[in-house]
Design a protein around this nucleic acid. Structure first.
Length: 546
RNA sequence: GUUCCGGUAGCUCAGCAGGAUAGAGCAACAGCCUCCUAAGCUGUAGGUCAGGGGUUCAAAUCCCCUCCGGAACGCCA
């Protein structure tokens, strides 16, 4: 059915035309917080007051007189200082139930994305250690965003960039070498920028188990490097899987060198005249596209900076035909945005071809003081530990609750101690509660009737609240997708669960005559379908019992 | 010094393409299970929306300034 917003927009446009011979493209229609102000409301009259040099209240009245109100509305009223409020008739909302039952988990799907090809890159943590808490926020955000955008009709590819080619991998090989030698009581200091995490010791032990002292006798550098990357990347993939995050593509930085794409991209930049040599280094003129200064892409020692292969990587993404690239980066990388966006434009992209969403940092507190998340020091709290101690669903819900640019504090002791009253259970409980009611109903011989079209008993305030939320689901999905704000979905989940709990408490669901009960069951079924789908969008499971 | 975030109830945070009496969770207080799962419901209390100016019929929301907190300002990645 057409959205009520669209219908009201149409009514107001026509009335405005008749009353004042005016037309407006944008007419704001919103749902008032206070139900006494109607189900939908418009400020149209107030926006016209100046132009028409008249009292907005009078204008609103005039518009109202020209509205031909369809049956789905009870009435329309004007309120001070000039709101036009629409009251929907109670029967109308129940029309959403058969729709949800028919469409199941595709309910709320939207065509907004127009099947635009989107590449969304996130996590992309270096394979030099385990994933820690800070990475988890990016994983949760990127994965949820991808799921939501898919539902909103975008063609989404989730991608992980594996930094297996740069200097940090050199340091990794040296770190493994040192740990390996230490296993044979040969004192070898860790390199200056080495990785001190315990997983590197595990890694060395694993090599020792397989090859004994082979690499004491011969140089193991190449082997350590390749084995280390593979070992750690597999660990990261395992952790992601446990976090319910998966990727369509793991893209290796090293292949960019092997395929000559770095050189090719460099040549394009040179050919276009975007480079120049200075102090024996090669600079890229990123300042032409809004960066505060030009950036070095080849250092004086002849090696590339991080930027150069990253440009080649984005060029590769563009060559695969994506309409839009989205990178999700941590707040500590915000300074990197202008140079990367500038580079994209040099390669023929538009200003908005690449969007970089910044995720503010997570401050982790343990025993009252901050734990710095650094792989070099090896002291970080790993994602794996967190999943074991707090639970996947609780963590994903926690991250998904907050907007991307909120600076978050995560108190570990509190999170572990209070894991049982995490708000995630509020939502999951609502889902389980419905399921339990179905069991009870079936014992009494009742079940959902998907052929039922007419509803007459769902007039309770709390039932109406649920119906309105169901009606809003698609709008919420669209807004979350286009604004890229996954936490909008979490807020919705919380509201829907709350409406369900209130309804449950206020109305005896399995009491009364048969039609009554079946209408209730249908309402619950629709609620359960949407609740489960919305939870899926934020990567949280919907248990049948708790 | 420059740039990017944030500052909303005791705490953690929503709300910010301007709208009607600023919300939720936790914590506090008072009620609700002979009745479908009390991981729930209902109610009370709690706010100078950091501060100051401006735009507007209307500002937590938009603009400017100041203060406080976080982050970044590499030929590191």
């Amino acid at each position: 059915m057409p959205t009520l917003e669209a219908t009201i927009h149409q009514l107001l446009s026509e009335a405005l035309q008749k009353a004042y011979n005016l037309s407006r493209d944008h007419i704001l229609i919103e749902q008032p917080k206070d139900k006494t102000n109607g189900d939908y409301s418009s400020n149209l009259a107030m926006t016209l007051a100046k132009e028409l040099r008249n009292n907005p209240f009078v204008i609103a009245e005039t518009i109202k007189e020209h509205i031909e109100l369809p049956e789905m509305f009870d009435r329309v009223e004007v309120a001070r200082p000039g709101f036009i409020n629409f009251y929907v008739s109670k029967d109308y909302f129940t029309g959403i139930i058969p729709e949800v039952l028919a469409q199941q988990e595709t309910f709320g799907n939207s065509k907004t994305g127009n099947q635009q090809k989107i590449n969304i890159e996130f996590v992309s943590v270096n394979p030099t250690g385990s994933m820690h808490v800070g990475h988890a926020r990016g994983a949760a955000a990127g994965d949820s965003m991808a799921r939501i955008m898919k539902k909103a009709g975008f063609d989404v590819t989730k991608e992980f960039y594996v930094n297996d080619g740069g200097n940090q991998i050199h340091n990794l090989a040296l770190s493994i070498n040192a740990r390996y030698h230490q296993l044979f009581d040969k004192a070898l200091d860790m390199p200056e920028d080495g990785y001190h995490g315990p997983e590197i010791i595990d890694l060395a032990q694993s090599i020792k188990a397989e090859h004994g002292e082979k690499f004491i006798l011969e140089n193991g550098y190449d082997y350590f490097r390749d084995y280390g990357v593979e070992f750690l990347l597999n660990g990261i993939k395992d952790d992601l899987k446990a976090f319910d995050v998966d990727f369509d593509v793991y893209f290796s930085e090293r292949t960019l060198y092997e395929q000559g794409e770095v050189e090719k991209t460099l040549q394009i930049l040179k050919d276009q005249g975007y480079t120049y040599k200075q102090d024996d280094a090669l600079f890229l003129k990123t300042s032409l596209f809004g960066d505060e200064k030009d950036r070095v892409i080849i250092k004086r020692d002849g090696t590339y900076t991080y930027l150069m292969p990253d440009i080649a990587y984005h060029q590769n993404k563009l060559s695969r035909g994506f309409d839009k690239l989205i990178d999700i980066l941590g707040g500590d990388h915000h300074g990197y945005i202008p140079r990367l966006k500038a580079s994209i434009q040099m390669l023929g992209g538009q200003e908005d071809t690449l969007s970089i969403d910044i995720l503010q940092m997570v401050k982790v507190l343990k025993e009252g003081s901050e734990v710095k998340m650094s792989k070099r020091s090896g002291k970080a709290i790993t994602l794996r530990d967190l999943i074991d101690d707090v639970g996947k669903d609780a963590i994903r819900y926690f991250f998904s609750k907050h907007s991307l640019n909120t600076h978050m504090d995560l108190d570990l002791d509190l999170a572990i101690k209070k894991s049982t009253d995490n708000p995630v259970y509020y939502a999951q409980y609502a889902h389980a509660r419905i399921h339990s009611l179905f069991d009870k109903a079936s014992e009494q011989g009742y079940s959902v009737d998907e052929t039922l079209k007419a509803y007459t008993h769902l007039t309770h305030e709390h039932a109406q609240d649920i119906l309105k939320l169901l009606l809003n689901y698609q709008n919420v999905v669209e807004e979350a997708a286009t604004k890229r704000i996954p936490h909008k979905i979490t807020n919705y989940v919380h509201e829907l669960a709350g409406a369900l709990h209130s309804f449950y408490s206020a109305v005896p669901i399995l009491k009364g005559d048969a039609t009554h009960i079946v209408e209730h069951l249908n309402l619950l079924k629709a609620t359960q379908i949407v609740l489960k789908d919305a939870l899926y969008l934020i990567g949280v499971s919907a248990p049948r019992s708790m």
